[in-house]
Design a binder for these strands. Sequence first.
DNA 1: ATTGGCACTCAACGGTGCAGAGTGCTAATT
DNA 2: AATTAGCACTCTGCACCGTTGAGTGCCAAT
Lengths: 338, 338
Amino acid sequence: MSEDRRRAVLHAIVEGYVATSEPVGSKALAAASEMGVSSATIRNDMAALEEEGLIAQPHTSAGRIPTDAGYRRFVDQVASAAMHEPHKRAISTFLSDAVDLNDVVERSVRLLSQLTRQVAVVQYPSPRESPVRRVELVRIGADRALVVVVSADARVEQSTVSLGRHVTEDEFESAARGLNEVAVGRTPTELAPSLATWLSRGTHQEWASSVADAVLSSARGGTVERVVFAGTSNLARAASDFETNAIGPVLDALEEQVVLLRLLHEMAEEGRDVSVRIGAENGADAFSRTSIVAAGYGSQGDSPSLLGALGPTRMDYPGTMAAVRAVARYLSRIVETE
Amino acid sequence: MSEDRRRAVLHAIVEGYVATSEPVGSKALAAASEMGVSSATIRNDMAALEEEGLIAQPHTSAGRIPTDAGYRRFVDQVASAAMHEPHKRAISTFLSDAVDLNDVVERSVRLLSQLTRQVAVVQYPSPRESPVRRVELVRIGADRALVVVVSADARVEQSTVSLGRHVTEDEFESAARGLNEVAVGRTPTELAPSLATWLSRGTHQEWASSVADAVLSSARGGTVERVVFAGTSNLARAASDFETNAIGPVLDALEEQVVLLRLLHEMAEEGRDVSVRIGAENGADAFSRTSIVAAGYGSQGDSPSLLGALGPTRMDYPGTMAAVRAVARYLSRIVETE
DNA sequence: ATTGGCACTCAACGGTGCAGAGTGCTAATT
DNA sequence: AATTAGCACTCTGCACCGTTGAGTGCCAAT
């Protein structure tokens, strides 16, 4: 039965369809590919593959195109390609020129979108457990305050709190001094009990406790999880793949971020080197015709941040996987030595 | 000759085409609109308008559509519509719930994209001349430092500088103390000379001068000008207006930001309440089929920040102008009282 | 200045008829 | 048992074609 040839046929169909975006037929496949069998044999194999649900034909008397399941099988069987050497060098130099965490993320997402010719997404690195370097309190308006926390790993987080009642200048100043004494040099986990004791002793009002909360959550890295993306125009380029202009919902979902974040979290839990979600696999309606290739970066410990590429299911999986892996690897290196 | 009727015909053509996205013909126009003249008369007027270059026909024996110049004439002659009362209330409540400058901008851009059903862009408010509240220096790595400047108007700016050579802990600490003494309480314009004298006296090395530069530019509000945008899916919805999928370049230009920023600057200089750029008027190739409706907000003095809506030239100008003006007005109020 | 009338143009639409690619099936071959 | 050649069949895509109808420009009449 030649299980091997069937696999080769599937791969050829995927590659052909990705390259030309047209259904591939048995005759063309027999001629082009070097597997020394006739088109009739290939037809038989195709019938079997269709039976398995791996390929389908858009209409009778057309060639076959891969189904989501077909892409999945293909991805599971193919190792991600190697990066070209010049590409590797480009990544390394391009990223190491960054001056700033924001800059690193920005550059990464652009780079990835260019390498993959897809929409690239990069999640901001999850902050590490890093001691507080300084706490700054600034009044704004009559009853609000700005809380700025600088961490030793060069992170600056800010938030505003409402004081609730009028606070005198003296109270405010003394709270700022006290907070610095208590917080500086402590990591977020050490910080919680220290703040509690600071609140309990002394004559602090309820406003002090909301300020303390703000300090703690800022030290932890803020509550907001963000992703940035680039290369949305690549979606437009591939718009012909989405039949009736389904690109609108995709753009919406990207802007919303919430669906995307959920997906990235799910993929992070798979814990593989590079994980791939194909079409309907990722559950969200908006992304039901797109695939996502993602990899974790940063602390290879508990909770890595993610980055990835998103495009039509008809994408160059090996190439995209290689690019995603490469960028993730370089980004890890930078984030960790920072 | 009835100049008035010609104007009415132009307006009817613009409104009809915007509503239906189909060329409007003389007969339909004579029937629908209440101007009590026959189609032949309208045909004569149309011929005159075409002579003036205000309308055109996609092909012989089709109705007329407005040219860029036609839209321009229309916009110049029509006052922007009034906002619906419920809309006004929605704007006010939606924006006043914001907790943070970032939040305000974020909310504004979403709101504007929903109101206009176009792509909305909001430029970050240009910082006001506000005294420095605190300067923070943090070392990162062996020879780099993070500079954080907190201004009295609740702005936090950060940047990193490379020190160039190894700096001892003592030198670093003393520089930090010195900088705070010199900078705190001074506005950016006062700051420049103070920093200069600080550098000249004492035994400061060349690294101190790059740190001082960083402090100054941070106090001025950072060098980066940013715009955020939302509602890109509205572009996709209107994709039928762009003949051969010209939405890709538009998305690219939005991400690049630089072209958009240049346009916004130019529009700011016109200094009108609400300014409109139509199609080819805005020079950039990518935007040659789109119009931009923009208004300034914030300090009505020297350099206002801008916000606006971007969409196909075939857009509802009065409605868009009304929405842009309304959001700009509310946003001004919030930014100024902050 | 306006209008009715008329000839003309041209996109859009539906029908019709190939050409070609691709398939499934069966019978022959190895 | 697997492979292949051959054949009938089914579609889509394309070109061609006449018809329809909306819309125009122009001219003479009001």
